[in-house]
Design a protein around this nucleic acid. Sequence first.
DNA 1: TTAAAGAATTGATGACAGTCAAGATTTGGA
DNA 2: TCCAAATCTTGACTGTCATCAATTCTTTAA
Lengths: 226, 226
Amino acid sequence: MHACHQHEKMCVSLVPIFNHLETEQMAEIMKTAKSGTFKRGEIIYHAGDKSDSLYILNKGKIRIYRLSESGKEQLVRILHPGDFTGELALFKEETHESYAEAIAMTQICMINRTDLQELLLKYPSISIKILTEFSNRLEEAERQTTRFATEKAETRIAVFLAECLEDQGQFNMLELPMSKKDLASYLGTTPETISRKLADLQHKGYIRQISNKKIEVLDLDGMLLI
Amino acid sequence: MHACHQHEKMCVSLVPIFNHLETEQMAEIMKTAKSGTFKRGEIIYHAGDKSDSLYILNKGKIRIYRLSESGKEQLVRILHPGDFTGELALFKEETHESYAEAIAMTQICMINRTDLQELLLKYPSISIKILTEFSNRLEEAERQTTRFATEKAETRIAVFLAECLEDQGQFNMLELPMSKKDLASYLGTTPETISRKLADLQHKGYIRQISNKKIEVLDLDGMLLI
DNA sequence: TTAAAGAATTGATGACAGTCAAGATTTGGA
DNA sequence: TCCAAATCTTGACTGTCATCAATTCTTTAA
């Protein structure tokens, strides 16, 4: 862990919450940032750790997951370069509730809580960017909660496929962004159920499984009407 | 709907996101606020409405709910005086995804989107307050999602009772804050299951149902170990 | 106050999805 | 490239909970 140098210059400019600033202002932020690298499998923070940094993912992939009251794991999201985490606890003097695990060789920048709070007061437009990001996340989280509360596994899977398709914009082809084990954890079900429901969807003619991760959607509207 | 007068002065000062400001600054905010009243059953906004106000609840109760992809309703939260809503869409030019329904005679203050954005730039500390609020809500929403994804109905009910107890601080007695029908919708289950699981919890000696809404918790730790 | 509407309970039944197990396939590290 | 470990698939079985229906209890508005 050392002060940010040349290539970390990228890091701040990668992130939507900062990259609207003047180059000069980004430079000011970078002065306060630290960087770090993690190997596959290393934990960046644990639930219960006191949280005091914003982590910006520069390179690699990070898995964010939580444990429920009874100890079961749920995958919350996977971070890609330009995403950030650790943001929640920045605004309350508390601890992380989730775990962040590097799932590939990973490089991050860290901005300290107090430094960030000063930045926010100095550049109010950063706050508005973060508020926008939080709004989206909150909307997304509530939509997800409603989905779990009201839809059965098959529908959750179908909706997930539809969203993949939309994100990837590859007309009818999509690539699952994670293993089916992780997908099961993300969707609140089991790998067995994922396998079976995908087989069902294929059997009903809505999709075709090309390979382990590649799926062709044959009838999007039909699939979503399940 | 008219400009805010005397008693609405309360409204801004009720809300944690504003009440840390100087009296004079609150007065400035109030000048831009409008007020409105709604009767039981009236809808304050619909999913799909263009959203352009922050709504602060002054008096009464508001039910926030969503419809899932397949049309099933889920109760998201119930607002009490001092709570606010409509905040999400303030930071993105989009529409509401949820419904807000007055469930009692209700009085609200509304602050327009553009007015609010100006306030945020002028008083950065308001942003930090809202960010804190958003952080908490986001954490809460993710915790809730994980609960739905990993816990069975009985556990979700037990955890809900435990949280009621904690909020109400009435040593072993709690009062359900909503009808069992709404509670079922909130917890992603049915009224029948709520009835049955409460009966089970009582049968196992963890709780005692005093009346429709009143419950005595006899063994909190035992109940949470289910 | 009371009638009507809505909410809560209880029972019977079936659908959905979790678990366990065994075999096939894929993956990634040496 | 290849092997060991991990992931994925399929089958059989079981537990949980949703649904439907019939009553009872509670709330609300005239």
